[in-house]
Structures are given as structure tokens and as C-alpha cells.
Nucleic acid binder design. Sequence first.
DNA 1: AATGAATGAGATTTCATTCAT
DNA 2: AATGAATGAAATCTCATTCAT
Lengths: 191, 191, 191, 191
Amino acid sequence: MARPPKARLPLKQAALELFVEHGVHGTGIRDIAKHAGCSEAALYRHWANKDALVNALFREHLGDVRTILEQAIAEEAAFEDKVRAACRSCYKLYDEHLQVFRFVLLVQHELAKSLPTDLRMPQDVVTDLIKAAVVNGDLRREVKGEESLMAAAVIGIFLETAVFVLYNRLPGPLSRYVEQVTQAALRVVRR
Amino acid sequence: MARPPKARLPLKQAALELFVEHGVHGTGIRDIAKHAGCSEAALYRHWANKDALVNALFREHLGDVRTILEQAIAEEAAFEDKVRAACRSCYKLYDEHLQVFRFVLLVQHELAKSLPTDLRMPQDVVTDLIKAAVVNGDLRREVKGEESLMAAAVIGIFLETAVFVLYNRLPGPLSRYVEQVTQAALRVVRR
Amino acid sequence: MARPPKARLPLKQAALELFVEHGVHGTGIRDIAKHAGCSEAALYRHWANKDALVNALFREHLGDVRTILEQAIAEEAAFEDKVRAACRSCYKLYDEHLQVFRFVLLVQHELAKSLPTDLRMPQDVVTDLIKAAVVNGDLRREVKGEESLMAAAVIGIFLETAVFVLYNRLPGPLSRYVEQVTQAALRVVRR
Amino acid sequence: MARPPKARLPLKQAALELFVEHGVHGTGIRDIAKHAGCSEAALYRHWANKDALVNALFREHLGDVRTILEQAIAEEAAFEDKVRAACRSCYKLYDEHLQVFRFVLLVQHELAKSLPTDLRMPQDVVTDLIKAAVVNGDLRREVKGEESLMAAAVIGIFLETAVFVLYNRLPGPLSRYVEQVTQAALRVVRR
DNA sequence: AATGAATGAGATTTCATTCAT
DNA sequence: AATGAATGAAATCTCATTCAT
């Protein structure tokens, strides 16, 4: 191999920070390069263009979130514990890597059009969790056919609480709400 | 009284559609003008600049949503009916004026930084609804101090269900879920 | 109408001159704008991009050349006179508007790929002239089936003489060779 | 003797193909390197820079064409046979190495400005052939002083026929027209 | 009053070339 | 010796806004 890539990681880090801070459209190549301490052209060796960078970054971090969720859920046996673990793992990510969390949240709507349909999303993980609980008998049969609706409710409770903390409608850190949010979610899915 | 301006409405309609479709930053003056069937300069007869248009549009539609919510809530007496009316009114807006709904949702995040803090948001309406219910005794006293958290949960359930419909994770129209969403929200706030 | 376009013509003239002088690739938007005495952005109001300008310019001037040829040919009755008129009209263009002639010659190969197939070219005019002469009996029947080959030869004689003058292999002006070139072309097509 | 360089030939071949396909200016170092299956820096081990590569390539292939022409002409005694041999040798090159032919044709115009004047061109070979024929008495004395004009005509017939085949105005292979083109050229130069 | 031309500033992207490994 | 990363300069193009008619 020739020179080991030196700008790749700084560029990703800089892009993440600036995208979250000023939005994807509000952040220029120039800003990213300057913040990363390298030239603008360096970016184009690693990604075809700005869009490609955004997409790569999104896929990567979305994968992280999904993995965190899946692992947390897999490590618990009871449904309630799975829900709590899911919540705790995500809120931990929020508190420790706010930028990753915000980026995934932020860009999701902006990229909705250009995302491949085969991409497994965190929403899918939660939906599957609920479907499995219905099958297992952890949730009443009446929920049958409403799994997606229940998933929407659970995700909504998870996310909007984070949004409230983000915009200072609730005091942080987010993790302090794990138990309350978990109980709220459980009250929704358990009739 | 002078005759009403002719380009104003088409411009607003065009801006709304394009902002929702391509984002505020992704939509140029030329796009708006072309889509509205008038000249680029016409825009500057009605608003000082692009930002002013965006802000005016946001304030206006946010006001609509807030008003709809407030009226719906005011027209009912019981807490449960208020929640149901709030949900129904918003979901009706979604089904009939999807773009208004999406615009308010979308721009909120994109413009988070530049929004004036004095603006009363739909979130505030819901929070106040819950606070009032605690005072009235419609909700148990234990909720005291958790009003914002409860509001977050309720709003999350409302919104994420809409998002699920928007991205075809749930079949539309959104209004069909009013009762289920209402019950879910109530289960959360009622211990 | 608002402001009458002031930069359009200067831009076309500047582009023509610079394309001929330094080649299409060798000429930048900046050069064209500076030479035309206007801003770079002005160009994009009139053409979508550089390629579009090149194409429009080519189509326009190609049309001129074709029209000149067709008119010259139409004004004469005898085959020999038609050939002479064709040659004279083109060589007059060369001597008086060298840039147009060179541009059409230069860009032809560069644009070969992107040109629509329906475009009637000067080559077609000459080919049709010869086909008509065979039908009329102005040329022997033996030429039948060789019209395109004869057209190639005639055009080759026309063009390469111009190229020789262009590169100073022959002294100008080109028009002085009209009679000799005409006779050469006639010797080729008349068995 | 050191072992022969490994990347040199692939680079030359790739450059030739891409220059013909997209033009010299339209082809980048990266394109050439990728197409040749080696690194970008490799090019600079063999040539000082892009210009040097272009020039070397042009000189080489131009030399090839000139040599082919000169040999073909030298191997025949009679003027008519010389013309036929010249045509046949070039058309053979066209049919078997289209890219070399096109490259020499193409680059001649694109690089007209930057070409060294000392370079002996195929045009010179043909002009000398005709001059010699006048001196030898193979062509009438009346042609005296018109040698360059005659050379232009002969070359024009040769080239434009090839161009017609290139753009599908005539069916290939080009070699099938050797005899007809030869006769056409002879008719021009023989009064 | 209303248009569309024009613009300055800046965005993104490309390119030939050099550099570090 | 050979690679691919990095770069400065420049190219193309976009944009919100102003201007002349």
C-alpha cells in the first residue's frame, strides 16, 4: 500500500459534527475540509461527492444504532427487560455520542427518498421485537395485527422524549428517563 | 381597498410544495417562481427575502396547526374527549393537507436554530393540556412533575404513527388510527 | 419584456472566437465571460451549461453553412455552375468569416457522438446534389451507386484545400482557388 | 540490459483509446491509469507529464503513418502504382488499427498550435510525390506550381472517404474503395 | 407593476502533479 | 519501484438578490 489514508477519519468526524450543528445543506465542503485540517480535494478521493459522503455516513451510523439495539435486545430474555435494554442502550448513545444520535435522526427525513428499500432500520428491529412478543405470548393476542401501530407508539415515545431533551423541554441527561419511558411503552403495548 | 396581490398565493403554495419535496435549502427562488408561474422578482414584492418567506410560511402554518389543536381541545369537556379531538383534528389535517403537516414537521428541525423562542408550539398546547388535567384531577397527582415527559410520550405516539403512514409502514389514511392512538396515549398518562 | 438581453450576442461572439483560437476544451467560462465583458453567471441564463452553448453554437453555424450552400446551388441551373457556386459560397464564408468555418470544421469531430442523427449536414447537401445530377443525366449513369463516394471525394477536395490554406501550406485567400477546385471536383465525378 | 518497463505499453494503449474516444483534453490521468490497470504516478515514471505523453504518442504514430506511406511509395515504380500503394497502405492501417488512424487525424487539429514545425507530415510525403511526378514527366508540366493544390485534392479524397466510412455514410471496410479512390485521385492530377 | 437579465459571492468538483510510505 | 493519498489551482456551476426596462 502507498500512503495510509490520513484524512479519511478526520473528514468523517468533521462532517458528522458540522452536519449536526449546521445541517447537511448548511455545511460546505470547505467547512468540512477546514475542520478536518486537510484540503477540499482530499474528500473526493474517499467519496465521489458530498452526497456520497452523507449517504456513507448515514449508513454507517444507522448500522451502529441498529447493532446496539439488536445486541441490547438479544442479551435479555424477558420482554420487559428487552424493552428496557433497548431504551437504555439508545439513550446511552444519546448521552455519550449525541452527534451520532442527532445525525441519524436529522438526516433520516432528508434522505428518505434516496435510501434503498432493503436497508434494515431501527424501526424494523422494534417492530420485530413486538411481533416476536405476540408470538411468544409475552403480549396478548389482541395486539395481533397491530404490531406496526404498537411499534410506532413505542418508537414515538422513545424518540420524542429524546427530542424534548434535545430542545431543552426536559432536563438531561436523557438516561434518567429510561425507567419511566420503559414503563410508558409497556403500558401502551400491554392492554 | 387596493386589489389583492395576484402572485402571493401561488408563490406560497409553490414554496410549500417544494420545501416539503426538496427541503428549504434544496429549493431555490427560481424553482419557486417557475412552479408558481411568475417571475423571480415577484417574490421580493411580497417578502423581504427568502428567509422572510420561510419564516412567514412557518409561522402561518404553525399557527394553523396550533389553532386547530386549541379549538378541538376547547370544544370538548372531558380529558379523554380532548385527547381524541386533538388527535382527530391533526390527523384530519394530515389526510387533507399532507404538505402543511409535513412542512411544519420538517422545517421545525431544519430551522431549529433560527426559530424565535417566543413562538408557542403545538408541543406547548399538549403540555398545557396535561398540566391542566393534573390540576383538574382528570389525571392522578402522581403525574405531577412529569407533565412534560407525558407530553413527550403523547406527542411521540401521535407523530410517529403519522410518520409510519408517511413512509408506508402503515396503510393510510391516518384518520383510521384516531381511536387506537387515543387509547394508547391515555394508557400512558393514566397510571 | 423586462431588460432586453445584452450579454447574449457578445457571449456567442466571444465563445466562437475563443473556441476557434484555443479549442473548446481549452476555453473556460471565465475566458468567455471576460472576453464578452460580462459575468460568468450571465452565460447560464442563456444556456444550461457550457456544453449547451457549444451545441447551440454549432447547430446555428452549421445551419448557416447549409443554408448558404443550398441557396448557392438553387440559384444555378447547370451542374457545373452548381458545383462552382457551392465552392464559391463556402470559400467566401471562409475568407470573410474564417471563425465560423473553422468552428464548424473543428467541432464536428468533437461533437460527433452527441449530435442528433436527424441533423441535415452540408455533406448531405452535396450528396443530394450529385444524386440529382445522376438522375438528370448531368452525370453518367455509371456513377449510379457511387454517389456517396463521389460526394466524399468532392467534399474532400473542397475541405482539404481550405485546410491547406488554414495551415499555410497554400497562400490565401481561399477564394482564388474556386475555379481550380471546381474543375478538380468535376474531373472526379465526370468519368 | 535492464528488464523492460511493465506499465509503458498498457499506458500507451489506454491513452490512445481514450484520447480517440473522449479527446485529449477530455481524458484525465486517472482515466488513463485506471484503464491501463496501474497507478496514476506510474505515468510520470515514463513521461515527464501529460503533454509529453501526448507528444510522444503523436510523434510515434505520425511516424508510423509516414513510414508506411513512404515505404509503400518507394516499393512501386510507376506513378499510378505509387498512388494506389499509398492509398492501400493507409486504408489497411485504418481497417486494422482504426484508433491509430483516428488519433493522428484527431490530434492534428486539437494540437495544431503546439505541434513543432519541424515535423514531417504525411501531407508532405504526398506533396513530394506529386512534385517528383512533375519533374519525372509522369504528370504534365501544366501542373507545375500547383503541386500543393493537387496534394490537397488527393489527400482530401483519401481522407474524406475514410471519414465517410467512419461515420457510416459509406459501408466498410475502407479498403474496398482503394481502386476507386485511386482512380479519382488520378483523374484530378492528370489533366 | 412586473419581468427576466445580470451579478458577486461562493459552492462543488476536477485536474495534473507531488509526496510519503 | 510503485502505489494511492494529498494538494493547490482552477474549472464549472448555483444562488439569492438587484437592476433596467
